[in-house]
């Protein structure tokens, strides 16, 4: 970890002003990922702006009935918030599937969106990695890629986004509220994270001078048929090999609406709205879910150690859809 200076932001505008024009400054909130990466010599900010003093710690309904999650609310407080538990239980389930109780007490909602990949090579500075050092090459493509992506990969990077929370946010169609030098803007979650393409070093569409202020959940609740299924190498405290967030609504025995978001398979939470539309008005059967899974995974490309992922993802999709359907309330 290199030496750096540290200051505490006194307000949102102050934070934005502090970071504007300082490419090597970074915001720090929970710190659970940033400090780790600094210790590993992967990230080298020369100045940290602590935003923990900002008043972004509330969870409250907006006038139009949408729920605002402050960027600095911890993952634990979000998952255990009565309104989240009641109206967005998928989100609570996803958050509680991630990390550990201690980390969830530290990690914030904004920070969760900003998590970096857990790719072994991104972390190991003795190996090439285009995400860490653009142009150095991708060690995972011909290496140990058990945890790596199968969808939306590029020849430059096959890393996955490690978050559980973001997969649920994707299924819920959350919106990320950010504030920067140019003012406030809303970024739909689907446009927040990026695919690696030619610039794997850029994880998301947040500008350097922008600060995440909150996450807005739409009014629609989906608290009857939902499931966050996380498949991993041990029962807890492990990143997803594949995860599936499903919400669905039935009408007269057929699917009225379904959303299927996948984690552990791509550089961003993955959804295929075309396939979801295909399921509309179809009976909610294993067969239809399986066919939908095949369509979602049609373009899947594997790299050796992750050859099992399409089959696992298909089974996980079917299982999550079935469990969402059969959930007893």
């Amino acid at each position: 970890m290199n030496n750096f200076t540290y200051s505490q932001a006194t307000g949102i505008d102050n934070a934005v002003n502090e970071i504007t024009g300082h490419e090597k400054s970074m915001f720090i909130a929970g710190g659970t990922n940033l400090i780790d990466l600094m210790k590993e010599n992967v990230l080298h900010p020369d100045h940290l702006i602590d935003i923990n003093g900002l008043h972004l710690t509330s969870i409250e309904f907006l006038d139009d009935g949408r729920l605002f999650l402050g960027a600095l609310v911890t993952n634990a407080d979000t998952a255990w918030h009565p309104e989240v538990e009641k109206k967005y239980p998928l989100l609570a389930e996803a958050i509680l599937a991630g990390a550990s109780p201690q980390l969830r007490n530290m990690a914030t909602n904004g920070g969760n969106l900003m998590q970096r990949t857990r790719c072994y090579y991104f972390y190991d500075t003795s190996t090439p990695c285009n995400k860490r050092t653009p142009g150095s090459g991708c060690s995972a493509i011909n290496g140990y890629n058990r945890i790596h992506a199968i969808l939306g990969t590029s020849q430059h990077c096959i890393a996955v986004h490690p978050s559980d929370m973001c997969v649920a946010l994707r299924a819920i169609n959350a919106v990320v509220q950010v504030k920067g030098k140019a003012g406030e803007r809303l970024i739909p979650i689907e446009h927040f994270h990026r695919l690696p393409a030619y610039t794997p070093q850029i994880d998301n569409n947040l500008a350097h001078d922008e600060l995440i202020t909150g996450i807005i959940l739409p009014r629609e609740h989906f608290n009857t048929h939902y499931k966050y299924l996380k498949v991993r190498d041990r029962a807890s405290y492990a990143f997803a090999l594949v995860s599936v967030a499903v919400v669905l609504r039935l009408k007269e025995g057929v699917i009225d609406e379904i959303r299927i978001a996948l984690g552990g398979v791509a550089h961003k939470p993955w959804r295929d709205e075309g396939v979801e539309n295909w399921l509309k008005d179809k009976p909610a059967t294993d067969e239809n879910f399986a066919e939908a899974a095949d369509m979602i995974l049609q373009e899947a490309k594997t790299f050796g150690a992750n050859d099992f992922k399409p089959a696992l993802a298909k089974r996980a999709i079917v299982r999550a859809c079935r469990e969402a359907l059969n959930r007893e309330i």
Binding site: Y6, I28, G30, G31, T32, I35, D36, L48, D50, N52, A76, S100, P101, Q102, L103, N105, M106
Partner: peptide, 19 residues
């Protein structure tokens, strides 16, 4: 490294003392 900060358990290795 778990300690309690204001009654809540956290990993003290992943936070800075100044924070």
């Amino acid at each position: 490294c778990t300690v309690l900060v204001n009654g809540k358990r956290i990993n003290s290795c992943l936070t800075l003392a100044v924070m």
